[in-house]
Each structure stands twice: as structure tokens, then as C-alpha cells.
Design a protein around this nucleic acid. Sequence first.
DNA 1: CGAGTGACAGATTTCAATATCTGTCACTCG
DNA 2: CGAGTGACAGATATTGAAATCTGTCACTCG
Lengths: 197, 197
Amino acid sequence: MPPAAAEPLTPERILETTEEVLRRFGPAKATVVDVARALGVSHGSVYRHFPSKAALREAVTERWLTKSVVVLEEIASAPGGTAPSKLESWLEALFEAKRRKAGADPELFATYTVLLAENSGVVDQHLSELIDQLARIIADGVAAGSLAAPDVPAAARAVFDATGRFHDPQYAADWLSPTIVTEFEAVTALVIRGLRA
Amino acid sequence: MPPAAAEPLTPERILETTEEVLRRFGPAKATVVDVARALGVSHGSVYRHFPSKAALREAVTERWLTKSVVVLEEIASAPGGTAPSKLESWLEALFEAKRRKAGADPELFATYTVLLAENSGVVDQHLSELIDQLARIIADGVAAGSLAAPDVPAAARAVFDATGRFHDPQYAADWLSPTIVTEFEAVTALVIRGLRA
DNA sequence: CGAGTGACAGATTTCAATATCTGTCACTCG
DNA sequence: CGAGTGACAGATATTGAAATCTGTCACTCG
């Protein structure tokens, strides 16, 4: 830890340090006292900004998920391209982002997997956003006549569910398999074919 | 335990008793000593028939999985019906069987979930069998002209992967949701539509 | 003989004591 | 005032000694 003394104690700074502590000690051993120590303050001060350890961990989780939505949002809202190819790009971007994170730093990924499991509320909201992006792509396709879906939100949900093996962190271990990309492509192709007009 | 004394000690009897002990004590507390006690023999005798505790638990797992394949096998091999409707029945039978088991006795289901996790080899073989049944249904459909699939085994695998949320025990908690059946139908419809000629 | 035994060594689990952590609050001090 | 403190009670986690379990094997006995 560099200086870190003169700065004012903001929620933002606490969140950054909490991430750092989680990264270093893992989800089981990271304590509020550790965070306070890393910040050079007493743990009572941390409780001025966050009502509980659970709330602090939830905020870290939310922050992390928010970052990961941005890239996908860009694909979903991009102007050109047909709906089927957009769908494919979006699903591939989701899969590749997860796979890269899981492969690059498995321990950190495991840490976040634990955080996700203990904050299902935040996760549910995040999943809604993702499914919403899918729904927008599908709705565009229906409007342009390239896709057919009697119930767009249900179709979006179905696409998301059907590709779960390639984005649900519970399957992270499978993402190391050499055949996983082939399997991803097969499922994606099947699903997109099922949506075509 | 009724008499249980005069009978000869067979692998079959050991497996039955192991199931019983697992049901009563759960996967964490069930010991080989417990099994031997329930059988009225010394634990050394159990080791005459199974080389290790792991092998014993694996055999129980295999036995359980074998039972669950039979029903589906019947659907897959039934003579009449079109491939798409057979596919739908098969997927529904798989889902409903799992859902019923998970709902009827959650603790026992959790016990088997633990056993499955520690015997991935046996599970992989079981999954291959299931995917094989799917492949046979799809191959029939392709032959009859009702389905289209350039690579039948890959398609079978894709169907299985896409419906994971409705058969993978990791999702058992979701099966209690009131919307799960609707979601299952949406994914099934999407997948079958994707396979239609 | 050969199915079954039970004592044994080393590995694993349990349990209770001890230490650490969470969350609160009356307090300090700029 | 009001951001930050640190001592405190109750909850949770850690630790190490004792108990139990796994797997082996020389032995018994029908």
C-alpha cells in the first residue's frame, strides 16, 4: 500500500481496497478488519460508509457486474448488421469474455463466483439486463423480418437459458475442454436456426 | 434392520445397505463401518467385496443412474410417432423425472448430487448414453425427413447442452420456481424448431 | 480352503478451548 | 458538528488433542 493516508475515506476507495483484499485473501478469509488495515483506518470507519460486511461485498459484486455489461451493451445497440449475426456476436462476446476471465485468473474468478452465489439479488438484476439486451436484438430481427418469435421476452429468456453452459460460472471448469468451442458453436447455431423466420 | 444374519454377504446386499445408510446419514457421515454394522458384519468383510470406500460409492452411483436410463430408453426406442414429438416427450420425461425426484425427497436428491460430483467418470458415461438416445431419435427424424441435422451426434449433444438447465442437478433449486415449466417449454420449442427440416 | 474377523497404523473427523471477527456506540478532536 | 476511533458483547473461525474412520493383514473356524 502506497501513502493512502491523506486521502479522504470515500465509498469508492473502500470498494477498491475491498476488491484488492478479496483478490489477495480470497472470499473466505477477507475480513472487514483486513480492509480497514489496508486503508490505514479503524474498522469502525468502514461501517460509517457500509452498514454491514454483506452490503460491502454486495457493492463490490454489483460494481464488477456493471463493468461486464458495458461491452455487450455496445454490441446490442450497434447500428448496422442483421439480427442473426448480431445475436451470434453477442453470444460469442459473452462466452469469450467469461472464458477469458476464468482462464486468466482462476482464483479471482472463483472468488467472484462465491460473491455471485451469495448475492443472488444483484445477479438476478444483472441477468435481467442481459436478457433485455437479447430481447432488443430479437425485437429488431422480428421487425426486420429476419427472425420469428411470437413472444420476444420469452424467446430472449429461452436463448439465454439454452446457452447457459457457456456463460454460467458453475460450468467454468468445462470451458477448458478442447471441444468447448465446437459445442458452443453447435448450440448457438441450433438456437439461431430456431429463431429464423 | 430385520434378521439380516443368515443371508450370504453378496455385493448386491452390500449395495442395498449402502444406499440405506447413505439415505439415513447423508453422504458426509455415511461410513463403511456404518454399512458393516447395518449388515451385522465387520467392516473388513465389506472390503472383501469392494476394494475401497470410493469404489463402493461409485457402484451405488452407477446402480442409481442405470435405473434412471431405462424409462428414457423406452421412449427413444418406441416404434410409432414422429421424431419431433418423440424428442419432446423424451426431453419432458427427463425433466419431469428429475424434477419429481428433487421435489419428493430433497435430501436424498442432494445426497445423490454429491455422489455424482465425486464420480464424474460414471456420470460422463451415463451422459453419453443419454446423448446417444437423443442421437437415435434425431437420426430417425433425419431419415424420415422431419428433421435436418448435418452432424447428428453434434446435434444431439447440442440439444442436451441447450436443455441443461432442466436436467443438470446443479439447477435443482430453480425447478421449484413457478415459471420453470414455461421456460422449459420455450427452450424445448426453440431447440426443436432449430432442428426441423 | 476361504469367507469372515478384529487389531492395527496412518489418515481424517470431531470437539471444545481459544482467538478473531462483526457490528455498536459513547467518545475524541479538528 | 461530524468523520473517525477503539473498547466491547456476541457470533464465527481456528487450532490442536482426542476420537473415529479407512484400508491391511495374519488369523480363526466351519
